[in-house]
Simulated assay, not measured.
Amino acid sequence: MLAAPRFFSGVRSSGSLKRPVAFYLLIGIFQALTERLWYLMSMRAFGGFIEDPQLHAWMGSVTHDMSLPMTLLISPFTLLLQLAVLSVLYHVMIRLVEPRAADLPTTVRVISYSAAPTVLSVVPLVGPVVGSLWFVVCTFVGVKYAHRLPWSRTALAIGPLLGLGFALTVQLLRMFMSSVPM
Rank of each mutant, 00 (worst) to 15 (best):
residue 1 M to E: 05
residue 3 A to K: 14
residue 4 A to Q: 02
residue 5 P to S: 13
residue 10 G to H: 15
residue 11 V to R: 03
residue 11 V to C: 01
residue 12 R to S: 07
residue 14 S to W: 04
residue 14 S to E: 15
residue 18 K to A: 14
residue 18 K to R: 14
residue 18 K to V: 13
residue 20 P to S: 05
residue 28 G to A: 08
residue 29 I to D: 00
residue 29 I to A: 05
residue 29 I to H: 01
residue 33 L to D: 00
residue 33 L to M: 11
residue 37 L to P: 00
residue 38 W to V: 12
residue 40 L to R: 14
residue 41 M to K: 10
residue 41 M to T: 08
residue 42 S to R: 13
residue 45 A to N: 06
residue 45 A to H: 08
residue 51 E to T: 07
residue 54 Q to A: 15
residue 54 Q to I: 09
residue 54 Q to M: 13
residue 55 L to P: 05
residue 56 H to R: 14
residue 57 A to D: 10
residue 57 A to I: 14
residue 58 W to G: 04
residue 59 M to Q: 09
residue 60 G to I: 04
residue 62 V to H: 00
residue 63 T to W: 06
residue 64 H to K: 13
residue 64 H to A: 12
residue 65 D to C: 05
residue 65 D to I: 02
residue 67 S to V: 04
residue 67 S to K: 09
residue 68 L to D: 09
residue 68 L to E: 03
residue 70 M to C: 00
residue 75 S to C: 00
residue 75 S to F: 00
residue 76 P to E: 01
residue 78 T to H: 00
residue 78 T to G: 00
residue 80 L to S: 01
residue 81 L to I: 12
residue 83 L to Q: 03
residue 85 V to Y: 10
residue 87 S to K: 05
residue 87 S to C: 10
residue 87 S to T: 07
residue 88 V to A: 15
residue 89 L to T: 05
residue 90 Y to C: 08
residue 92 V to I: 15
residue 95 R to V: 03
residue 95 R to W: 11
residue 96 L to H: 08
residue 100 R to M: 10
residue 101 A to W: 10
residue 101 A to G: 02
residue 103 D to W: 07
residue 106 T to V: 05
residue 106 T to A: 15
residue 108 V to W: 06
residue 109 R to P: 01
residue 109 R to Q: 12
residue 110 V to T: 04
residue 110 V to E: 01
residue 117 P to K: 12
residue 119 V to H: 04
residue 119 V to G: 04
residue 119 V to K: 04
residue 120 L to G: 02
residue 121 S to T: 13
residue 121 S to M: 07
residue 122 V to T: 06
residue 123 V to L: 13
residue 124 P to A: 10
residue 125 L to D: 01
residue 125 L to K: 01
residue 126 V to H: 01
residue 126 V to K: 04
residue 132 S to H: 14
residue 135 F to S: 05
residue 135 F to Y: 15
residue 136 V to H: 05
residue 137 V to R: 04
residue 138 C to P: 00
residue 139 T to C: 15
residue 139 T to L: 13
residue 143 V to P: 01
residue 144 K to S: 11
residue 146 A to K: 07
residue 147 H to Q: 12
residue 155 A to I: 03
residue 155 A to Y: 01
residue 160 P to W: 07
residue 161 L to P: 00
residue 161 L to F: 02
residue 163 G to I: 07
residue 167 A to K: 07
residue 171 Q to C: 10
residue 171 Q to L: 12
residue 172 L to S: 14
residue 173 L to M: 15
residue 174 R to E: 12
residue 174 R to Q: 08
residue 175 M to E: 12
residue 175 M to V: 14
residue 176 F to Q: 10
residue 177 M to R: 09
residue 177 M to F: 14
residue 181 P to Q: 06
